[in-house]
Design a protein around this nucleic acid. Structure first.
Lengths: 138, 138
DNA sequence: GCGTATGGTGAGCGCATGCTTACGATTACT
DNA sequence: AGTAATCGTAAGCATGCGCTCACCATACGC
């Protein structure tokens, strides 16, 4: 097979998908990394900012102002853990969850449109395999 | 479905695949964009550097030193088009083709290892769909 | 011949990011 | 009690990149 490398292919697709998301995120005034934070917290609170940074693939020192802004806007809560006062417990607020859901549904609509060109079984296989590969390479 | 967005997923996978490629490229002293150039030229010469930049998603002004270096190392040829002396005709040299093939086969080996965890039909569907989506979003 | 456009190139601005270092507060271990 | 490690934060360095502007050479249409 004479195809391009997976890195080049995923790099190109990633940039295009990010470009598709950009107007939606801009409309909510939420940068991409902030959205990644909201998305990561959707499944439940996170204990330690270090763990959150690792989960989303961001540098923890870069995360500080992002969390500051999300907290200031009332989209996340950031509490000291009584069990260990070094640690911050991070969670979505109801407002944060609503914002994340709103952005996600708009993004999802764009994804559905893009994926609609594919047979249903192929799109499902693609998404499932993508998730598997992200997990495998973690 | 409560999965992450495709942009976040492909962004993470892309970074990991690029990280997998990095030692291979470093060993050949070929930066990622230079490798993208060599890969793009594998299918045949390109007429205009502008077209090449567009094809690989790079800024044409960023391409200049990359092409300079590849040319200096004898991996590409860069000739003026007699039909239009503004234009550069770009092509792989035999050395460039060998270098691209060598890098590609090492990258491919790593990809095969990664993909080997998947059923054969799923990996083929994934790759084919990835290529389709890159084309669709161009 | 003139005006407009394109290709290639050089220079540079501003932003984002990976990474390092360091510090204070706190925890854990001996 | 002393030491080491961790968490969160601040500051900063170096690099890469998107993008703009400008210029020269060349091409094209009128």
């Amino acid at each position: 097979m004479n195809r391009d490398d997976l890195a080049l292919l995923t790099f190109r697709l990633s940039r295009r998908l990010l470009a598709m998301e950009e107007p939606i995120l801009a409309h909510h005034d939420i940068p991409m990394w902030a959205y990644a934070v909201l998305t990561a917290l959707r499944d439940g609170p996170t204990r330690t900012q270090t763990a959150l940074a690792t989960a989303i693939g961001a540098d923890k020192t870069r995360l500080i102002p992002i969390l500051d802004d999300l907290q200031r806007r009332g989209l996340i809560s950031r509490d000291s853990d009584p069990a260990d006062r070094r640690v911050r417990l991070l969670a979505l607020t109801p407002d944060g969850r609503r914002t994340q859901e709103s952005i996600r549904s708009q993004i999802r609509a764009g994804e559905e449109e893009l994926l609609s060109a594919l047979p249903a079984d192929e799109r499902e296989t693609f998404v499932r395999t993508l998730i598997t590969l992200v997990r495998t390479t973690a």
